[in-house]
């Protein structure tokens, strides 16, 4: 509880600091809306010509898309600091974090707040609500319970994968982690139904880099869509695995940390 409170306060302090720059805030909110808008435009264009893609209707795809955007916003809110990890390592700035009685990983995560988090959370939340409204979902208690498990699990997967991707900085040692950026781009592929990709790519996105468990699989099981819908039930397990992976990779990396200077 104490750990969470400190985490929240650290984020809050950075949030207050970032909000000082009002222009930045609005530019990034608009940027998030425009970026995600472009993706939605693509979906709208495709569905203007074909009614379904691999059995997926427009609002079902929007639901997957919305989950991905919401997850991105969550990661930008809770773990944006990890994108600065390469620089922190490179400049020896983890030193000061190692001197405080608080987990280093959480200090890194809460050392920044992503401004576009607010844009993405708003857009993602909006897409989720409107897709669900159009999809005629029967909200039985079971469905509600399922959603209550799937949603946080999916968001946790995204945050954990961001941590894993950036923890590679301990090995790569450059000032900017381009590898993590590349992985993140790869994850963007799962904004669309997984079945449109080649089998190899599907396998990678479902296992080694389980980005498909952020949007595609949870939505599949929630809507009972397709033969592989049951795979979505694994989402909480995948989330637990990803959290474990994030903590392990980060602490392994931390052991390699050699500060800077002499």
């Amino acid at each position: 509880m104490h750990t969470l409170r400190v985490y929240r306060r650290s984020l809050g302090a950075h949030l207050r600091a970032t909000l000082e720059y009002q222009a930045d805030f609005w530019i990034l909110v608009v940027a998030a809306v425009l970026t995600q808008g472009a993706g939605l435009l693509l979906i709208a264009t495709i569905f203007a010509r074909v009614p379904r893609i691999h059995g997926w209707g427009v609002w079902e795809v929007v639901l997957i898309f919305g989950m991905m955007v919401l997850a991105q916003g969550t990661s930008e809110l809770l773990a944006e600091g990890t994108w600065g990890l390469a620089g922190l390592i490179n400049r020896g700035e983890l030193d000061r974090m190692l001197l405080r009685p608080y987990p280093c990983l959480l200090q890194v995560c809460s050392s920044r707040v992503g401004m576009n988090a607010f844009g993405n959370l708003t857009v993602g939340g909006g897409l989720l609500v409107s897709a669900l409204a159009h999809l005629d979902v029967a909200w039985t208690p079971g469905r509600v319970a399922l959603a209550a498990v799937l949603l946080p699990s999916a968001l946790l997967i995204k945050v954990s994968l961001t941590v894993v991707a950036n923890s590679t900085s301990f090995w790569l040692r450059g000032a900017i982690n381009t590898f993590a950026g590349g992985l993140d781009q790869l994850g963007e592929l799962t904004k669309y139904p997984l079945s449109i990709y080649s089998v190899g790519l599907q396998a990678v996105l479902a296992t080694a880099l389980p980005f498909a468990f952020i949007g595609f699989f949870p939505v599949s099981v929630f809507l009972q869509h397709g033969r592989l819908a049951w795979v979505g039930l694994l989402t909480p397990l995948v989330a637990a695995w990803c959290v474990f992976l994030a903590v392990t990779v980060f602490s392994r990396g931390l052991r390699r940390y050699e500060s800077a200077g002499n």
Binding site: R5, R9, A13, A17, T18, Y102
Partner: peptide, 17 residues
């Protein structure tokens, strides 16, 4: 904390310690 007012640093340290 580079981007924070000094008192925020002290308050965060108070919480951490």
């Amino acid at each position: 904390w580079w981007d924070l007012p000094v008192h925020e640093t002290f308050e965060l340290l108070r919480d951490m310690y």
